[in-house]
């Protein structure tokens, strides 16, 4: 994931060493851009989020206590996710509505796992922003509905219903795709 000298890079970045900061950015920018594009519709918006996220990361790096590379990576990723959510909220793109459906009904989206990662990303990015956001947070980042409801300022029911709809839509898209391939 990261080079062995990540801790040194962090330490040097903390003291404002620009080269170390650049190297850290170089190591993290691609995977973090991957996080941002999952949430943002356009690449330009994702770049904006990436830029803002890294700026905040370097700003608050002094307060960060290094424990391990995965912990550091997770911390930066959380910054990117939060920044993405802020951008979505700012653009008023998230309009989450509770849906009266049987939320306990299981929707099987296991075929998603058979997709190529790039195809999966395309599929995820093609669904409405509300669905996509909750799906990303729940299924990919591993947030609970409670955490999602707090992050997005919605009820747990709304979070569940958005996830349900997201899965249903993804399932339908996959079925359509399979039909296209079949025909």
């Amino acid at each position: 994931m990261l080079r062995l000298n990540t801790k040194d890079l962090i330490d040097k970045s903390k003291s404002g060493n620009r080269k170390a900061q650049q190297q850290l950015f170089s190591q993290l920018s691609a995977p973090m851009m991957g996080v941002c594009v999952r949430y943002m519709k356009s690449t330009e918006d994702a770049e904006d989020v990436l830029l803002e996220g890294f700026y905040k990361m370097f700003k608050s790096l002094k307060a960060f206590t290094y424990e391990s590379e995965p912990a550091f990576f997770g911390w930066v990723k959380r910054i990117m996710v939060n920044e993405s959510l802020m951008k979505l909220r700012k653009n008023k793109e998230i309009q989450l509505l509770a849906i009266n459906e049987d939320l306990d009904q299981e929707v099987d989206v296991s075929p998603l796992q058979d997709l190529e990662v790039s195809d999966l990303l395309k599929v995820i990015r093609s669904i409405p922003v509300g669905y996509r956001t909750v799906f990303n947070l729940y299924e990919i980042e591993g947030y609970s509905h409670q955490e999602i409801s707090e992050q997005l300022g919605v009820s747990i029911g709304t979070s569940k219903s958005q996830l349900f709809k997201a899965k249903k839509l993804l399932r339908e898209m996959l079925e359509e795709k399979n039909e296209d391939y079949g025909s």
Partner: peptide
């Protein structure tokens, strides 16, 4: 997703 490059994920920046 975290380990893939932008190209592999289907985006460029």
């Amino acid at each position: 997703l975290d380990q893939l490059s932008g190209q592999e994920l289907g985006f460029e920046f």
